[in-house]
Design a protein around this nucleic acid. Structure first.
Lengths: 180, 180
DNA sequence: GAATACATGTAAAATGTTACATGATTTT
DNA sequence: AAAATCATGTAACATTTTACATGTATTC
């Protein structure tokens, strides 16, 4: 699936592996992330499959950049993937819930400590979604040629915001139940 | 991490790989799932590491069962994992959001179709969490020796319920925004 | 007669993480 | 002087998925 994240960006413009890592970190990372090493190896595989092509851009006093470009076959692959509707719900993995599920043997105090720690973390996330992230997207939506994109980006931001709110609410409830 | 899901169950009782798959499917699968093949190979690895031990239980007219038991070292490992607090937020992967992020090039109608399909799926999930799942846990909580466990199971069920509600709300909002 | 449940596993491929390796430039 | 940024990549390992393989007993 990382494949389609990379193709999505390369459909806008050409980028190096390094560029793509930076882009993902500031945009899709809330719902899709990847390590730099995986990005490099995946790009290499995509080139072998004829979905992207690369060329070297020489630089002075910095290592050369290998810049990737999407091919026609890549564009088709991407379009096809986006237009194919998902007919199932994605199954998630939530380590915190797994720990909680087996926490009856643990002393209640350390469970509460962990949940309170998570409260702080999710509160910070929420603030970020409502602050910096929102501002950045609003700037894009005021520029003409980015307006259409910005609408979709805003939808993914909003998901992050609602998710953080839901998580905090659940932590509040759970802590309250365990305290009594 | 599947390791700890398996150890968590084996801490209650001895089980075969088949049993563990059934158990996970009806309990943790909303926040932790695994394929049968992964469960079998992981159990084998855990035995090599001395965290569980197994013995064969012969059966008539059915294949023999290989039943696993947690060792002392396994119990310690599990306790240690549960008591170690998580100091970061887990990063999720949401394919639907990834698709949406790159959907500006697609025709708006097919995006809406996909979102409406997801609405139905999540509505069904929500109903399940509020119905069957809730009933099962309530039965456990009325039996004495399961009461403590049931409290934690209920917390994970409640997460599923809130998540489904949040998801539906987000889909409602997003569909409305795209329609206008 | 066909499908599902019981019960085990192996093999191969895909995906993702951690660690290693290099080296100049820029910022603290 | 140390740390961070720019920029590339490889190797090893761990995790997860998909597909294959077998065979009985029960239910529809």
């Amino acid at each position: 699936m990382l494949k389609y994240a990379l193709l999505g960006f390369l459909n806008y413009s050409t980028y190096s592996g390094y560029d793509l890592k930076q882009l993902m970190d500031v945009s899709t990372s809330n719902f899709w992330h990847a390590k730099q090493s995986q990005i490099y190896t995946t790009l290499k595989k995509l080139e072998k499959d004829g979905i992207v092509i690369s060329h070297i851009e020489p630089q002075e006093s910095r290592p050369n950049r290998r810049v990737y470009e999407i091919t026609e076959s890549g564009k088709e692959d991407l379009r096809n993937w986006i237009s194919q509707p998902m007919t199932t719900i994605e199954s998630r993995k939530e380590t915190l819930l797994l720990k909680l599920f087996f926490s009856s043997q643990l002393d209640p105090q350390s469970v509460l400590t962990e949940l309170r720690l998570q409260q702080n973390l999710h509160q910070a996330e929420l603030t970020r979604f409502q602050g910096v992230t929102k501002d950045v997207i609003q700037q894009f939506s005021s520029s003409e040629d980015m307006q259409k994109e910005a609408q979709f980006w805003e939808a993914t931001r909003r998901f992050g915001e609602l998710y953080a709110e839901m998580y905090i609410r659940w932590l509040d409830e759970t802590i309250e139940n365990l305290e009594s």
